[in-house]
Nucleic acid binder design. Structure first.
Length: 815
RNA sequence: GCCGGGAUGAUGAAAUUGGCAAACAUAACGGACUUAAAAUCCGUCGGCCGCAAGGCCUUGAGGGUUCAAGUCCCUCUCCCGGCACCA
């Protein structure tokens, strides 16, 4: 009987679904395992990246099922977002119809891959039953001051016509369409993620099973720096606060610089001869795009304000400048400039003829201001620094900070790069922000009992910009929940990253109608034991989810403070070293491959070709190889496997098969436990198959061979479930292979009686010896020295040293 | 500049964490079966020298530690990714 993947795969997909084989059922008496892959945006078609992502998760889920865990492996759709809105404008339809159709197509494709999802738990974030809980969580944040509205300079994508969070700006452009982002002054809603800066950073330390680079990226993004805020007295009694991480250089500050946007600038220059010049400068800087302003080769520009500040440590009066190299968003928007020990200050001082003073001397060659070519930024001995002269600069940092604090000259401070999360979007296809504006009561949150604030359906899309909801009169006009007077609804919607920030909790109890999720269910299933997805979410989604989990934990709704125990970031699928994309025209369509080879072959190729974290170059020949292997296994099951209960014979070949079988169980198990090394797990299964092919026809009819095939089928089942299910039944089993249990190996069968010792003379392999494993060190040593080949190489030499590594190797040093 | 990850046959990749480098597969070549092809099965397959036995060399480059280094340490080159006028 040939391997007809087509009938076989659809047959089992249907039966598995009917039998609800993958239903997740909590059972406190048994260990749980929650495996989750990042859910897709329903674009309508799955691509190879999805296939790889979901195949990895599926193998994990099936392996854990076979290990006897209660497995939760859900799937859903991240269904809000701009593409649906754009498609609606283009096709003159509405985003909901379009999205639901896409979900349907995509689900059919996922079903054809045979993934082990509990489809009863499917969620779509665009449904009111889901997004009402976005609103609910938002209101909880509003109550606690963690959601707030403020006017500020924001990132604006001119093409998407909406604001963007800092995390959504990639290389100065929009993360979705790459259009350069511009700044705009707007009043917008924010979530106070910075309230969690400290634990978002500290808890990274506990994420031992996260990739190093994701941790590093999040650390970078949060950007904690320790330093001092120093108080400089200005004229008219104003105090200028300046942040520095180098308090050890304070005695070398020869001027201070404010960002052009700094609130004190206008006051400082008022009435000064420099006033007009400074105003012109500020105006010019304001017109520059952020990208141009931070461009690397641009010369730093600035001008003198005419004002002076007093350095608190030495009473020195130093000039106050305004310059474009100081950013309002970071620190206090003002710096002290130490040209001798900061390269940017150095260049600026040279350009504008500002004074310089050395306060840190390197240990070898003393610095002279006049001959310095660049700033000296490393540590050394402090000079010109009053009572700190002669001290080591790195050691003095802390002392000088405490001293300044003590003398009220400044205070020890920590600054962060992380900004609050801007969540307002001027788009339609998202969660309405549940807020009402009342002339007498102000900003009023929609009461919980009035949720959800439903997204209206009768909206026309003009593509002209501005929040589409603002044009829907019936939506905008409402009554104030507090006083009952006419009021106006917020017409912006929430950023779609909100939807994915807690969906993993919703999967624990997707039908829960009284809360975002059932506390008990979440207590059982959380945290996600294994999360799998692309590296592109290293900061965005993964940071937001960590924030949400911490907030929900503070509400007492969930016990864990970190959502994802282990994280696997799968590599990209490439074609000839390039990303698959429509514009390159190099897309390999999963549906085509499934049609020609079947889902199992596709899965096997993807799993075997590279470890899951590594990039995977698509290779048609590799597909053929996977296909050949499955056929090879099929013939094995079809031929010798069916001889169950066959003759009880023993032979060398069968002994080898038994040994190999136990080795394979051990290897596959340890590859799965030690980080999902699917490629090597599969290669060891291939070795077992090769061993079975070496048997004679008689040997193949033996019960030993049949047993080996049974084990083989179970070991292979997580990787290629359909063919294994079929083979399992061919072997006479009446229930699913996934009801079987993972085989265990007998360590005693793996113990060798003899070991091959490699014998090295002066580091080179010269001979091999087959010796009993019980041989003592001295015995091994003598045997090695007596070996004729060894004697050839040691003749006329004195043996100085002999090292014996039990069961492995003898190393002889002779000269 | 700072941080993180890499570099191994013609190719994708292995290497029990310091103990026989190249498992498994792909491509290529050879053989068996066949009238022939496909499929299948078996074999060869890092480089150089050699008829062979065997020897020498080989994990981006150079140095070091060690009986022993792809693996540890130092210096350097190149590639990928993140952050960055961050004070």
């Amino acid at each position: 009987m040939d391997y007809h993947f087509k009938d076989l795969e659809s047959k089992w997909q249907k039966i598995w679904a009917e039998d609800k084989l993958y239903r997740a059922v909590p059972d406190k008496a048994r260990p749980k395992y929650y495996v989750l892959e990042m859910f897709p945006y329903p674009s309508g078609r799955i691509h190879m990246g999805h296939v790889r992502n979901y195949t990895i998760g599926d193998v994990v889920a099936r392996y854990k099922i076979l290990q006897g865990f209660q497995v939760l492996h859900p799937m859903g759709f991240d269904a809000f977002g701009q593409p649906a809105e754009n498609a609606a404008i283009k096709h003159k339809s509405d985003p909901e119809t379009w999205t639901l159709k896409c979900i349907d197509w995509m689900k059919q494709e996922l079903l054809r891959m045979g993934f082990s999802y509990d489809w009863d738990r499917e969620i779509s974030t665009c449904l009111a039953e889901y997004y009402r809980w976005n609103q609910w969580i938002f209101l909880k944040m509003l109550e606690r001051g963690l959601a707030y509205k403020k006017a500020s300079s924001v990132n604006w994508c001119p093409s998407c016509e909406t604001t963007l969070a800092n995390e959504e700006v990639v290389d100065g452009g929009c993360w979705r369409c790459h259009t350069p982002v511009v700044e705009k002054e707007l009043e917008q809603w924010y979530l106070k993620i910075t309230a969690y800066s400290d634990c978002l950073l500290d808890d990274l330390g506990g994420l031992e099973n996260w990739p190093e680079r994701v941790i590093a990226m999040q650390k970078n993004w949060i950007g904690k720096s320790f330093g001092v805020e120093i108080f400089f007295k200005l004229e008219k009694g104003d105090i200028l606060r300046v942040f520095t991480t180098r308090p050890d250089t304070i005695f070398g500050a020869t001027y201070v610089v404010l960002a052009p946007e700094h609130p004190l600038v206008k006051k400082l220059i008022s009435g000064k001869p420099q006033e007009q010049e400074v105003l012109r400068f500020i105006d010019r800087v304001a017109k520059e795009t952020k990208l141009a302003r931070v461009a690397e080769d641009v010369k730093k520009e600035g001008c003198f304000t005419g004002a002076y500040a007093v350095n608190p440590v030495n009473g020195e009066k130093i000039p106050v400048w305004v310059a474009d190299y100081v950013l309002m968003e970071y620190g206090t928007g003002a710096i002290m400039a130490v040209p001798t020990h900061d390269q940017r200050d150095f260049l600026f001082a040279k350009e504008h003829g500002l004074p310089m003073r050395v306060v840190i001397q390197p240990k070898d060659q003393p610095l002279v201001v006049e001959t310095m070519q660049e700033a000296f930024e490393t540590e050394g001995v402090m000079v010109n620094s009053g009572v700190f002269d002669g001290q080591d600069s790195s050691g003095a940092k802390k002392k000088i900070s405490l001293w300044m604090e003590d003398k009220m000259m400044g205070k020890i401070a920590v600054h962060w790069r992380l900004r609050d999360w801007l969540i307002s979007r001027q788009r339609y296809w998202g969660t309405p922000i549940p807020v009402v504006y009342c002339a007498s009561c102000g900003v009023v949150g929609v009461p919980e009992k009035d949720l959800p604030v439903v997204l209206p359906k009768n909206v026309t899309f003009t593509g002209e910009g501005g929040s589409p909801l603002a044009k829907v009169k019936e939506f905008v006009e409402t009554k104030c929940p507090k006083c009952g007077k006419p009021a106006r609804r917020e017409t912006d919607t929430m950023a779609t990253f909100i939807d994915s920030s807690w969906y993993f909790l919703r999967f624990c109890s997707p039908q829960c109608a009284t809360a975002p999720f059932d506390k008990e269910e979440a207590a059982y299933w959380m945290p996600v034991d294994q999360y799998i997805g692309g590296i592109e979410h290293a900061v965005l989604h993964l940071l937001y989810s960590r924030f949400y989990t911490k907030f929900l934990a503070d509400l007492g709704l969930v016990a864990v403070r970190e959502p994802f125990q282990r994280l696997l970031t799968q590599g990209m699928v490439l074609k000839e070293g390039e990303v698959m994309s429509k514009s390159r025209g190099n897309i390999v369509d999963p549906d085509e491959i499934i049609k020609n080879y079947g889902a199992d072959t596709l899965r096997l190729f993807i799993l075997f070709a590279a470890p899951p974290e590594a990039e995977l170059d698509w290779n048609d020949k590799g597909m053929d190889g996977a296909w050949r292997f499955l056929n090879r296994v099929w013939r094995l099951a079809d031929g010798l496997g069916t001889a169950a209960g066959g003759s009880r014979m023993s032979s060398q070949g069968l002994d080898a098969v038994v040994k190999k079988m136990h080795q394979t169980i051990k290897k596959v198990t340890s590859d799965m436990e030690g980080g999902f090394k699917f490629n090597t797990a599969i290669s060891s299964i291939m070795e077992l198959v090769n061993e079975l092919y070496k048997l004679t026809e008689d040997e193949q009819r033996s019960s030993v061979a049949a047993q080996a095939v049974r084990v083989l089928v179970v070991l292979l089942a997580p990787f290629v479930p359909h063919i294994c299910e079929e083979m399992w039944r061919m072997l006479g089993n009446k229930t699913s292979v996934f009801k079987a249990s993972w085989p265990s190996f007998d360590p005693s069968l793996l113990v060798e009686e003899e070991a091959t010792y490699v014998v090295q003379v002066n580091g080179k392999v010269r001979s091999r010896l087959l010796l009993s494993v019980d041989a003592g060190e001295e015995e091994v040593k003598q045997a090695a020295l007596a070996d004729p080949k060894v004697r050839e190489w040691t003749a006329a030499k004195a043996v100085h040293k002999v090292i014996v590594v039990p069961k492995k190797l003898v190393s002889i040093v002779a000269s």
